[in-house]
Write a protein that binds this DNA or RNA. Structure first.
Lengths: 199, 199
DNA sequence: TCCCGTTCCTAGCAACGCTAGATTTATGGA
DNA sequence: TCCATAAATCTAGCGTTGCTAGGAACGGGA
């Protein structure tokens, strides 16, 4: 059985190689530049080999997204736990989310913009995704009052996602994104309305 | 000069025909099903004719988007002016925004999801787009306090956009979207945190 | 050494956005 | 009315895409 084990190991390695190549190519030139042909050339296998690992290009993007969830969750956790108080935690985790999307736009697209075939708001969703959501919920929780924490967290997440995508699409100017985040956090913490300081 | 006038008139008509066909096809089968070939077949002209009107497929999407801005602005205005009080106005305009995106998803995509070459947050932006944004600002204004109204409106818009796109992408379950909106509005109006009633 | 199953690659299909060049159509002057 | 010219339109094709069928090469067991 050792031979088959070695084969499976090598196969898993190659699969990881494909995913990494896809992510790197996407981060360097955007997903529109990621074609199965280029990817096959990069990993030095023919196209059908890639199709033996993944059903299609979308499945490769999904695999890249799955690995990204863990990264995001870790960064959100670090930001939240570094905050001294609940209000600061919400601001910091929000800033960390925007920074992640800004620093790794292609990865973010695969995770949250692609029309993907993944379970999301169910227990079947990837664990790392749940972990990230739970980090957000931890930061939102102190300001939930009597509201449903899940729904409120989803709403906060949606607001962050909207800031990301509208800015990326050129709908919002890049500048003052920090002030928009401050205004959003002020709303969720029920701070009195202010000028939206840049933190 | 009458001949040339007639030609320009016919040409404008045909351009409108193309835009309408593109929107209808997109709304019926999604933008991925809208190809220049199919579009050409629908309007009963060859492909190069379409390219004489528009630089490419993206330009056609942009033209569809431009017409959509006016529709959205009108619906937002109707919702806002029908509200009895400021808090109700924010809730109603938000609901109208979500309803528009839900009812015309393909049009919404062209307007706000496509990577488009249009000026947005500048005076050069299309008038109808400004009109829609101003409707949002009118509704947000009463709750702005000392904050920058433009930035606060952009933030509210982003939150709505995030709710739309996350739901459309399967990241948020369709149900309870109204409660998420209620929670969002409660934040912006500084209502005490409640369970997020469905209005 | 041979056999057989697995793995892999070559080559190709249909469809895409887009365009060059031929062809048809319409226009204005004899 | 007829023709030359210019404008409008179509046919056909290029290069690229995602994806796959069918044959070639490889490796392990007898």
């Amino acid at each position: 059985m050792s031979i088959q084990a070695r084969r499976e190991r090598e196969r898993a390695q190659r699969e990881e190689l494909i995913i990494t190549a896809a992510r790197e190519l996407a981060e360097a030139e955007g997903w529109e530049a990621v074609t199965v042909r280029r990817l096959a050339e990069r990993v030095e296998y023919s196209q059908p080999v890639l199709y033996s690992h993944f059903k299609g290009k979308d499945a490769i993007m999904t695999a890249v997204a799955l690995e990204g969830f863990a990264d995001l969750a870790a960064e959100l956790r670090a930001a939240r736990t570094a905050a001294p108080d609940p209000a600061g935690a919400l601001a910091r985790i929000g800033a960390a989310y925007l920074a992640f999307a800004d620093r790794r736009p292609a990865l973010y697209d695969a995770m949250f913009r692609q029309n993907v075939d993944l379970p999301f708001a169910t227990p079947q969703a990837p664990a790392a995704l749940h972990a990230g959501f739970d980090e957000l919920a931890e930061a939102v929780g102190p300001h939930a009052g009597g509201a449903d924490l899940g729904l409120l967290t989803e709403t906060f997440w949606a607001a962050l996602h909207g800031l990301v995508t509208l800015m990326r699409g050129g709908r919002l100017p890049r500048e003052h994104q920090d002030r928009r985040l401050a205004l959003l956090v002020a709303c969720f913490t029920r701070e009195p309305a202010g000028p939206g300081h840049s933190l």
